[in-house]
Simulated assay, not measured.
Amino acid sequence: MADSAFSLTVYELQNYKASQYVGVAGLVVLLWDHLLTFNDEVRLIWRARLSIPKLLFLFNRYAVPTSLIALTYATSGLSDDILPDSVCQIWFGIGVVLGMLSIGTSNFLVLLRLWVLWDRRTRLVLSTLILFVLTQLTSIVCTAYVVASMIPSMVFDPDLHACMLTGKVDFAILWSPGVVFELMVFIMTCWNALDQPLPQHAKMARVMYRDGSTYFFVLFGLRVVNLVLSIIAPRSLVFLGVFFIWSACNVTLTRLIMNLRRITDEAEESHIEEFHIDCPQWPVSPGLGSCASESYELQGKGS
Protein backbone atom coordinates (compact mmCIF):
# COMPACT_ATOMS: atom_id res chain seq x y z
CA MET A 1 0.00 0.00 0.00
CA ALA A 2 0.98 3.63 -0.46
CA ASP A 3 1.96 5.97 2.32
CA SER A 4 -1.07 7.26 4.19
CA ALA A 5 -2.65 10.61 3.51
CA PHE A 6 -1.12 11.96 6.74
CA SER A 7 2.35 11.66 5.18
CA LEU A 8 1.31 14.02 2.35
CA THR A 9 1.72 17.75 2.61
CA VAL A 10 -1.28 20.08 2.61
CA TYR A 11 -0.21 21.24 -0.86
CA GLU A 12 -0.22 17.68 -2.20
CA LEU A 13 -3.60 16.91 -0.65
CA GLN A 14 -5.06 20.02 -2.29
CA ASN A 15 -3.62 18.93 -5.63
CA TYR A 16 -5.12 15.46 -5.33
CA LYS A 17 -8.50 16.92 -4.41
CA ALA A 18 -8.36 19.34 -7.34
CA SER A 19 -7.59 16.44 -9.71
CA GLN A 20 -10.50 14.46 -8.30
CA TYR A 21 -12.99 17.32 -8.68
CA VAL A 22 -11.88 18.12 -12.25
CA GLY A 23 -12.09 14.45 -13.22
CA VAL A 24 -15.60 14.07 -11.80
CA ALA A 25 -16.68 17.29 -13.56
CA GLY A 26 -15.46 15.93 -16.89
CA LEU A 27 -17.39 12.68 -16.42
CA VAL A 28 -20.60 14.58 -15.51
CA VAL A 29 -20.28 16.71 -18.66
CA LEU A 30 -19.71 13.61 -20.78
CA LEU A 31 -22.69 11.68 -19.39
CA TRP A 32 -24.98 14.71 -19.59
CA ASP A 33 -24.02 15.31 -23.22
CA HIS A 34 -24.56 11.61 -23.92
CA LEU A 35 -28.14 11.92 -22.69
CA LEU A 36 -28.72 15.12 -24.68
CA THR A 37 -27.51 13.59 -27.95
CA PHE A 38 -28.88 10.05 -27.54
CA ASN A 39 -31.95 10.68 -29.76
CA ASP A 40 -29.72 12.09 -32.51
CA GLU A 41 -27.42 9.10 -32.10
CA VAL A 42 -30.30 6.66 -32.69
CA ARG A 43 -31.60 8.62 -35.67
CA LEU A 44 -28.31 9.47 -37.35
CA ILE A 45 -25.94 6.65 -36.37
CA TRP A 46 -27.84 3.52 -35.37
CA ARG A 47 -30.05 3.61 -38.45
CA ALA A 48 -27.08 3.99 -40.79
CA ARG A 49 -25.88 0.83 -42.47
CA LEU A 50 -23.06 -1.08 -40.83
CA SER A 51 -19.60 0.27 -41.69
CA ILE A 52 -16.16 0.67 -40.16
CA PRO A 53 -16.68 4.39 -39.38
CA LYS A 54 -19.94 3.55 -37.61
CA LEU A 55 -18.23 0.89 -35.48
CA LEU A 56 -15.36 3.24 -34.65
CA PHE A 57 -17.79 5.97 -33.64
CA LEU A 58 -19.75 3.60 -31.39
CA PHE A 59 -16.52 2.34 -29.85
CA ASN A 60 -15.62 5.90 -28.85
CA ARG A 61 -19.17 6.65 -27.82
CA TYR A 62 -19.41 3.82 -25.28
CA ALA A 63 -15.88 2.65 -24.43
CA VAL A 64 -14.80 6.10 -23.26
CA PRO A 65 -17.58 6.73 -20.68
CA THR A 66 -17.36 3.12 -19.45
CA SER A 67 -13.63 3.46 -18.89
CA LEU A 68 -13.98 6.90 -17.30
CA ILE A 69 -16.62 5.65 -14.87
CA ALA A 70 -14.25 2.92 -13.67
CA LEU A 71 -11.25 5.25 -13.46
CA THR A 72 -13.22 8.01 -11.72
CA TYR A 73 -14.48 5.49 -9.19
CA ALA A 74 -10.86 4.47 -8.53
CA THR A 75 -9.56 8.04 -8.14
CA SER A 76 -12.47 10.11 -6.80
CA GLY A 77 -12.17 9.05 -3.17
CA LEU A 78 -15.96 8.89 -2.95
CA SER A 79 -16.11 5.18 -2.22
CA ASP A 80 -15.41 3.51 1.12
CA ASP A 81 -14.11 0.38 -0.61
CA ILE A 82 -10.49 -0.61 -0.09
CA LEU A 83 -9.12 -1.76 -3.42
CA PRO A 84 -6.03 -3.92 -3.85
CA ASP A 85 -3.11 -2.35 -5.70
CA SER A 86 -3.62 -4.84 -8.53
CA VAL A 87 -7.05 -3.35 -9.31
CA CYS A 88 -5.53 0.12 -9.71
CA GLN A 89 -2.76 -1.28 -11.88
CA ILE A 90 -5.12 -3.21 -14.14
CA TRP A 91 -7.70 -0.43 -14.48
CA PHE A 92 -5.16 2.25 -15.24
CA GLY A 93 -3.24 0.03 -17.63
CA ILE A 94 -6.43 -0.69 -19.58
CA GLY A 95 -7.43 2.97 -19.29
CA VAL A 96 -4.21 4.22 -20.88
CA VAL A 97 -4.57 1.74 -23.77
CA LEU A 98 -8.23 2.65 -24.33
CA GLY A 99 -7.36 6.33 -24.14
CA MET A 100 -4.80 6.07 -26.90
CA LEU A 101 -7.14 3.90 -28.98
CA SER A 102 -9.91 6.48 -28.63
CA ILE A 103 -7.56 9.29 -29.68
CA GLY A 104 -6.43 7.25 -32.68
CA THR A 105 -9.95 6.35 -33.79
CA SER A 106 -11.10 9.95 -33.26
CA ASN A 107 -8.33 11.24 -35.48
CA PHE A 108 -9.12 8.62 -38.12
CA LEU A 109 -12.84 9.50 -38.15
CA VAL A 110 -12.01 13.17 -38.64
CA LEU A 111 -9.52 12.21 -41.33
CA LEU A 112 -12.18 10.26 -43.24
CA ARG A 113 -14.38 13.36 -43.27
CA LEU A 114 -11.48 15.50 -44.40
CA TRP A 115 -10.80 13.17 -47.32
CA VAL A 116 -14.38 13.69 -48.50
CA LEU A 117 -13.97 17.43 -48.04
CA TRP A 118 -10.76 17.32 -50.08
CA ASP A 119 -12.55 15.40 -52.86
CA ARG A 120 -10.18 12.49 -52.15
CA ARG A 121 -7.24 14.21 -53.81
CA THR A 122 -4.54 11.58 -54.00
CA ARG A 123 -1.66 13.67 -52.72
CA LEU A 124 -3.51 14.84 -49.61
CA VAL A 125 -4.99 11.42 -48.86
CA LEU A 126 -1.65 9.62 -49.13
CA SER A 127 0.30 12.22 -47.15
CA THR A 128 -2.20 12.30 -44.28
CA LEU A 129 -2.58 8.51 -44.28
CA ILE A 130 1.19 8.04 -44.02
CA LEU A 131 1.34 10.64 -41.25
CA PHE A 132 -1.50 8.90 -39.41
CA VAL A 133 0.14 5.46 -39.64
CA LEU A 134 3.50 6.79 -38.43
CA THR A 135 2.00 8.64 -35.47
CA GLN A 136 -0.10 5.62 -34.49
CA LEU A 137 2.91 3.29 -34.59
CA THR A 138 4.78 5.80 -32.43
CA SER A 139 1.81 5.97 -30.05
CA ILE A 140 1.76 2.18 -29.69
CA VAL A 141 5.41 2.12 -28.67
CA CYS A 142 4.96 5.07 -26.29
CA THR A 143 1.83 3.53 -24.74
CA ALA A 144 3.60 0.22 -24.10
CA TYR A 145 6.50 2.05 -22.45
CA VAL A 146 4.24 4.21 -20.24
CA VAL A 147 2.07 1.28 -19.13
CA ALA A 148 5.14 -0.81 -18.27
CA SER A 149 6.65 2.04 -16.21
CA MET A 150 3.37 3.11 -14.61
CA ILE A 151 2.07 -0.22 -13.28
CA PRO A 152 4.73 -0.73 -10.57
CA SER A 153 4.13 2.84 -9.29
CA MET A 154 0.33 2.62 -9.15
CA VAL A 155 -1.06 1.82 -5.66
CA PHE A 156 -4.24 2.37 -3.66
CA ASP A 157 -4.08 4.80 -0.75
CA PRO A 158 -6.49 3.61 2.01
CA ASP A 159 -6.79 7.09 3.55
CA LEU A 160 -7.44 8.98 0.34
CA HIS A 161 -9.57 6.05 -0.91
CA ALA A 162 -8.03 6.58 -4.32
CA CYS A 163 -5.48 5.12 -6.67
CA MET A 164 -2.33 7.20 -6.88
CA LEU A 165 1.18 7.18 -8.28
CA THR A 166 4.17 6.77 -6.01
CA GLY A 167 6.68 7.71 -8.69
CA LYS A 168 7.02 10.03 -11.68
CA VAL A 169 5.89 8.59 -15.03
CA ASP A 170 6.80 10.20 -18.34
CA PHE A 171 3.27 10.82 -19.64
CA ALA A 172 4.53 13.51 -22.02
CA ILE A 173 5.45 10.94 -24.66
CA LEU A 174 1.82 9.75 -24.69
CA TRP A 175 0.45 13.09 -25.89
CA SER A 176 3.29 14.15 -28.22
CA PRO A 177 2.42 12.00 -31.31
CA GLY A 178 -1.24 13.08 -31.23
CA VAL A 179 -0.35 16.74 -30.85
CA VAL A 180 2.03 16.55 -33.81
CA PHE A 181 -0.55 14.74 -35.96
CA GLU A 182 -3.37 17.18 -35.22
CA LEU A 183 -1.16 20.19 -35.85
CA MET A 184 0.02 18.83 -39.22
CA VAL A 185 -3.52 17.95 -40.33
CA PHE A 186 -4.79 21.37 -39.31
CA ILE A 187 -2.04 23.05 -41.35
CA MET A 188 -2.93 20.87 -44.37
CA THR A 189 -6.61 21.73 -43.97
CA CYS A 190 -5.88 25.45 -43.87
CA TRP A 191 -3.63 25.15 -46.90
CA ASN A 192 -6.31 23.23 -48.82
CA ALA A 193 -8.98 25.78 -47.87
CA LEU A 194 -6.85 28.56 -49.34
CA ASP A 195 -5.97 26.48 -52.40
CA GLN A 196 -9.56 25.35 -53.02
CA PRO A 197 -11.93 27.82 -51.31
CA LEU A 198 -15.10 26.37 -52.86
CA PRO A 199 -14.98 22.57 -52.58
CA GLN A 200 -17.55 20.32 -54.18
CA HIS A 201 -19.28 19.65 -50.84
CA ALA A 202 -19.81 23.29 -49.89
CA LYS A 203 -22.35 22.80 -47.10
CA MET A 204 -20.35 19.99 -45.52
CA ALA A 205 -17.24 22.13 -45.89
CA ARG A 206 -18.81 24.93 -43.86
CA VAL A 207 -19.73 22.53 -41.06
CA MET A 208 -16.33 20.86 -41.19
CA TYR A 209 -14.43 24.13 -41.07
CA ARG A 210 -16.64 25.53 -38.31
CA ASP A 211 -16.88 22.46 -36.09
CA GLY A 212 -13.50 21.14 -37.15
CA SER A 213 -11.86 24.39 -36.10
CA THR A 214 -13.61 24.13 -32.75
CA TYR A 215 -12.50 20.51 -32.49
CA PHE A 216 -8.93 21.48 -33.22
CA PHE A 217 -8.59 24.57 -31.02
CA VAL A 218 -10.39 23.10 -28.01
CA LEU A 219 -8.73 19.70 -28.03
CA PHE A 220 -5.34 20.83 -29.27
CA GLY A 221 -5.27 23.46 -26.53
CA LEU A 222 -6.34 20.96 -23.87
CA ARG A 223 -3.81 18.38 -25.01
CA VAL A 224 -1.05 20.97 -24.99
CA VAL A 225 -2.06 21.78 -21.41
CA ASN A 226 -1.95 18.07 -20.66
CA LEU A 227 1.49 17.84 -22.25
CA VAL A 228 2.79 20.79 -20.24
CA LEU A 229 1.35 19.43 -16.99
CA SER A 230 2.95 16.04 -17.58
CA ILE A 231 6.32 17.77 -17.96
CA ILE A 232 6.32 20.44 -15.25
CA ALA A 233 3.58 19.51 -12.78
CA PRO A 234 4.32 17.61 -9.56
CA ARG A 235 3.21 14.01 -9.23
CA SER A 236 0.10 15.06 -7.29
CA LEU A 237 -1.19 16.99 -10.33
CA VAL A 238 -0.35 14.48 -13.05
CA PHE A 239 -4.02 13.50 -13.51
CA LEU A 240 -5.42 17.03 -13.24
CA GLY A 241 -6.44 17.35 -16.88
CA VAL A 242 -6.31 13.76 -18.16
CA PHE A 243 -9.89 12.66 -17.48
CA PHE A 244 -11.48 16.03 -18.24
CA ILE A 245 -9.63 16.29 -21.56
CA TRP A 246 -10.63 12.74 -22.47
CA SER A 247 -14.27 13.65 -21.77
CA ALA A 248 -14.00 16.87 -23.80
CA CYS A 249 -12.47 14.95 -26.70
CA ASN A 250 -15.37 12.51 -26.76
CA VAL A 251 -18.02 15.23 -26.50
CA THR A 252 -16.47 17.33 -29.27
CA LEU A 253 -15.99 14.36 -31.60
CA THR A 254 -19.61 13.27 -31.06
CA ARG A 255 -20.93 16.73 -31.90
CA LEU A 256 -18.70 17.00 -34.98
CA ILE A 257 -19.64 13.59 -36.43
CA MET A 258 -23.36 14.02 -35.73
CA ASN A 259 -23.45 17.48 -37.32
CA LEU A 260 -21.74 16.13 -40.42
CA ARG A 261 -24.06 13.13 -40.49
CA ARG A 262 -27.05 15.49 -40.23
CA ILE A 263 -25.80 17.43 -43.25
CA THR A 264 -25.38 14.15 -45.16
CA ASP A 265 -28.94 13.08 -44.32
CA GLU A 266 -30.31 16.40 -45.50
CA ALA A 267 -28.43 15.99 -48.78
CA GLU A 268 -29.76 12.45 -49.17
CA GLU A 269 -33.35 13.58 -48.58
CA SER A 270 -32.87 16.32 -51.15
CA HIS A 271 -31.65 13.79 -53.72
CA ILE A 272 -34.55 11.45 -52.94
CA GLU A 273 -37.03 14.28 -53.49
CA GLU A 274 -35.36 15.11 -56.81
CA PHE A 275 -35.58 11.45 -57.76
CA HIS A 276 -39.36 11.35 -57.18
CA ILE A 277 -39.84 14.57 -59.14
CA ASP A 278 -37.46 13.96 -62.05
CA CYS A 279 -37.67 10.19 -62.49
CA PRO A 280 -40.87 8.55 -63.77
CA GLN A 281 -42.48 6.14 -61.33
CA TRP A 282 -43.37 3.67 -64.13
CA PRO A 283 -42.50 2.23 -66.47
CA VAL A 284 -38.80 2.32 -65.68
CA SER A 285 -36.88 1.97 -68.89
CA PRO A 286 -33.31 0.58 -68.99
CA GLY A 287 -31.99 4.06 -69.57
CA LEU A 288 -33.47 5.27 -66.27
CA GLY A 289 -32.09 2.49 -64.09
CA SER A 290 -29.14 4.60 -63.03
CA CYS A 291 -31.46 7.18 -61.51
CA ALA A 292 -33.02 4.64 -59.13
CA SER A 293 -29.64 3.14 -58.35
CA GLU A 294 -28.11 6.51 -57.50
CA SER A 295 -30.98 7.40 -55.20
CA TYR A 296 -30.72 4.09 -53.38
CA GLU A 297 -26.97 4.52 -52.86
CA LEU A 298 -27.51 7.97 -51.39
CA GLN A 299 -29.88 6.68 -48.72
CA GLY A 300 -27.08 5.04 -46.73
CA LYS A 301 -29.45 3.50 -44.23
CA GLY A 302 -30.30 -0.01 -43.32
CA SER A 303 -33.80 -1.34 -43.43
Rank of each mutant, 00 (worst) to 15 (best):
I82E: 09
F275Q: 08
N60E: 05
I90C: 08
A292D: 10
S213R: 09
P199H: 00
L227K: 01
L160S: 07
A74P: 01
L68I: 09
C279Y: 06
A2K: 01
T138W: 15
G300D: 10
L30C: 04
E266D: 14
N192L: 14
F156Y: 07
Q136F: 13
F220I: 07
A2T: 05
L101V: 09
I52K: 10
Q281S: 11
V10K: 10
L114W: 09
V24S: 08
N107P: 04
T105S: 15
L298S: 14
Q14E: 12
I245Y: 13
T143K: 02
L114G: 08
S293H: 06
K54G: 11
H34P: 00
T214F: 15
L227P: 00
P283Y: 07
D157W: 00
E12D: 12
I263A: 11
L98P: 00
A18S: 02
R123S: 15
L36P: 04
L30T: 03
L13G: 07
D211T: 05
P286A: 08
P177Q: 00
R49M: 04
L260W: 00
C279W: 02
T72L: 09
V42D: 04
L137E: 10
L124P: 08
D157N: 15
K301S: 12
L253C: 01
F6E: 12
M188R: 05
L58Y: 08
I277F: 09
I82A: 02
T214S: 12
A148T: 13
R43H: 14
D81G: 13
K17P: 05
W32L: 14
V146K: 02
R121H: 08
I231Y: 05
F59Y: 09
I257E: 06
K168G: 07
L36W: 12
L227S: 12
A25P: 08
T254H: 09
G104D: 00
G178S: 14
T214P: 03
L55K: 10
D119R: 04
Q89H: 14
V125H: 06
C291A: 12
Y209G: 02
L129Q: 13
Y11R: 04
I52M: 11
I257H: 03
L288I: 04
A5Y: 01
N107S: 06
R123V: 06
I69R: 02
R47Y: 03
N226L: 05
S19G: 07
R262L: 15
I94F: 05
S303H: 11
Y296P: 11
H161P: 01
T166D: 05
W91Y: 11
I103L: 14
T252N: 03
V64W: 03
F156K: 04
L298I: 03
W175Y: 15
A248K: 02
N39K: 10
A70C: 05
F132A: 05
V169K: 04
L56G: 05
L55E: 04
G23S: 15
V133F: 08
S139Y: 13
T252M: 11
A74D: 04
G77W: 08
S293N: 13
V110A: 07
F132H: 05
I263V: 14
D119G: 12
A248C: 08
T75I: 10
V179S: 03
I90Y: 03
F59P: 04
D159H: 08
G289P: 03
L131W: 10
